[in-house]
């Protein structure tokens, strides 16, 4: 396949960026999107140019590091996968592909397609845990949990923290991310004890960091590579309300 790439280049956080055009040739349809980017970068390096910076690591869709906005979609045109699992067979020969970083104020650009998502870590640090220390815990089977609840908790816990939900949202809302963690613990007995402080602290931190509000467009769910459901947002709102009135 021959492709025309239109890639966002920006040398640093406070510098103006711009789109640069790069043609690539003879790409196999079986190559992954990031392997196509590798081929481009090898060519740039061979020509003495700076390679395009982008985040990636496990390349099997679980670490949450990769983060490209491709042709207007977080993680590209395919459903339920991350950019690293996207394959070139999803594109047409001769197609122009527009590649941008996540765009949201709480995710400042570091370089080219790489953004700083440490805001997500700060939200987890505000309460995304059960406050127990190592040791002195009961036997694992002493805490029976309904299978349905365990499964729903797992659905929520599958979030990889990539930030696609924020990038997809016109308000740059982090509600899907935050609600996934709040839901995981709200569904489990282990999380009940700190439920009130958790949801209050995490939501306050989310607001502090400049993430926007949810206006129910469901763009986050549509673009989430792990199919995290917006039902989690409803659950978080209920938890939040319950916390405020208790």
């Amino acid at each position: 396949m021959d492709l025309k790439l239109k890639i966002w280049r920006q040398t640093g956080p406070d510098v103006e960026g711009k789109f640069v055009h790069y043609p690539v040739h003879n790409i196999s349809k079986d190559a992954s999107f990031l392997e196509m980017m590798d081929i481009l970068n090898e060519e740039l390096v061979a020509n003495g140019e700076e390679p395009v910076a982008f985040d990636h690591d496990c390349r099997e869709g679980i670490c949450g590091m990769c983060s490209l906005f491709i042709n207007g979609h977080a993680h590209g045109p395919d459903d339920s996968i991350t950019t690293c699992q996207l394959h070139m067979r999803k594109f047409k020969d001769g197609e122009t592909i527009v590649i941008e970083p996540w765009r949201a104020r709480p995710f400042p650009i570091i370089k080219d397609l790489m953004v700083d998502r440490s805001a997500f870590d700060l939200i987890i640090q505000a309460g995304g845990y059960v406050s127990i220390n190592t040791g002195g815990v009961p036997d694992a089977n002493a805490i029976p949990i309904k299978k349905e609840n365990a499964d729903l908790a797992m659905d929520a816990a599958a979030c990889i923290g990539c930030g696609a939900c924020v990038a997809a949202c016109k308000n740059a809302s982090a509600m899907l991310f935050v609600s996934a963690k709040v839901s995981q613990f709200a569904l489990l007995p282990q999380g009940k004890i700190e439920a009130k402080q958790r949801v209050e602290n995490m939501v306050a931190k989310m607001d502090d960091l400049g993430f926007g509000n949810c206006t129910n467009t469901y763009a986050c769910e549509a673009e989430c590579p792990k199919d995290i459901s917006v039902a989690n947002i409803a659950r978080m709102n209920r938890e939040f309300l319950a916390a405020k009135v208790s």
Binding site: G135, N141, I143, P144, Q184
Partner: peptide, 21 residues
């Protein structure tokens, strides 16, 4: 001890219908 610790942290391990691991 590891399994006990992880369950206490809220790790959603697979469970049987009776609620056990």
């Amino acid at each position: 001890n590891i399994i006990d610790q992880c369950v206490a942290q809220g790790v959603p391990f697979a469970r049987e219908y009776g609620g056990l691991l």
